[in-house]
Write a protein that binds this DNA or RNA. Structure first.
Lengths: 203, 203
DNA sequence: CCTAAATGTGAGCAACGTTTACATCCGCCG
DNA sequence: CGGCGGATGTAAACGTTGCTCACATTTAGG
């Protein structure tokens, strides 16, 4: 019974884990299939039995990320008062950004479409659409009940998404310091910005 | 007088031009120093006389991009009615996004801090700060004259920046189609979203 | 004019993604 | 229980990359 049997047994999962760890250390663009294979204790060619290429490996990481992300967002939405769509939107936006701040690695991979094959995945577009629909439903309900100001709902939806996405990206892109936000203030400042924006949606 | 003299004469500029063209064809992440050198008609090692490495080359591209970007934004601001700070903000935001739509290449390079050495450049942070200060001045003036709603100006500034940055990034990241915005609608839809947001700033 | 600095060449290094031929092991069918 | 085929691993190799280095060529200035 050698320390390392010829067959790894769970190489696919091990590769995804090693890749996540690698990204955490050196960033998504400096990830190397060979190094991840090294950490999984296999030869450089082995990963290609499980992934058609580097992009497929990164896409697998993104799928994991998306699953956790979706769980976080839907949980936050479920915990929000069901009778207040604006509170629901705030919860969703807050969850998105909070998740990005806590898992910048996963967020980066998920949002950088040059690293992954988003549309080549069955899971990623579907999950994305689910989240989108949740947001759209809240807006529709809020407008119907006169709680959210009128106007083209598509404009409100895209605006909200861009707002929250921009905040998250500015953070993971390391741009906040240049805009006068010290790292330890980031979470509080971002929360304030979201609060300000979402409250502005009320009718 | 040989077709290609031993000395190129303006290799630095030629490399930047070749790199921009290359980015336009294959995207910033697939740029290759060797290919750019090939197009400039020079050996693979030559560029390293002018750039300390690939990052320095990309940073030079980013500096060109920032110069044009700053010109566009300040021009738009100058053309806006000086007595209406809200119109000024709208002009700045619109210029940012319009510029990004028209020059996705340059925008990508400029905003992807893993490709360039932003803080290692003397020009980039300075130019960034100038634009920031223009925005801050408009907000301060608007609040002082009661034209913009009250509240922490830092929150308004970060929010505005994130909003506009998020829109531009969603576009260049190719995410708009997934949010129900067809390419030919993009410009109009984005303009509507900005309009909606900025008008919401009025007191 | 002649030399020093600037700028280009070309070979070469280590690392990468990926492919291929071959080795080993697991599970299933007789 | 045996053996056999497919799944999964290895090792070597290919072409390309970023970058360096020794050397060649040109330009510029005292």
């Amino acid at each position: 019974m050698p320390a390392r049997p010829y067959h790894h047994g769970r190489l696919r999962e091990a590769m995804v884990e090693a890749t996540v760890a690698l990204i955490e250390e050196v960033g998504p663009e400096r990830v190397t299939v060979r190094e991840a294979a090294r950490r999984a204790g296999v030869s450089p060619g082995a990963p290609f039995r499980h992934f058609s290429g580097k992009t497929a490996l990164m896409t697998a990481v993104a799928e994991e990320a998306m699953a956790r992300f979706k769980a976080e967002v839907t949980a936050a939405l479920a915990a929000a008062p069901a009778e207040d769509p604006v509170a629901g939107l705030k919860a969703m936006g807050g969850a998105l950004v909070r998740w990005a701040l806590k898992n910048p690695t996963h967020f980066k991979v998920l949002s950088d479409r040059t690293l992954i094959d988003f549309d080549g995945s069955a899971f990623l577009p579907a999950a994305n659409r689910e989240i989108q629909d949740l947001q759209a439903a809240l807006i529709a309900e809020g407008q119907a009940r006169g709680l959210i100001r009128q106007g083209d709902p598509r404009v409100l939806q895209l605006g909200g998404r861009a707002f929250v996405y921009g905040l998250a990206r500015m953070y993971v892109d390391g741009q906040l310091p240049q805009w006068g936000v010290a790292p330890d203030q980031a979470e509080a400042r971002i929360a304030a910005v979201i609060e300000d924006y979402v409250e502005g949606l009320r009718a």
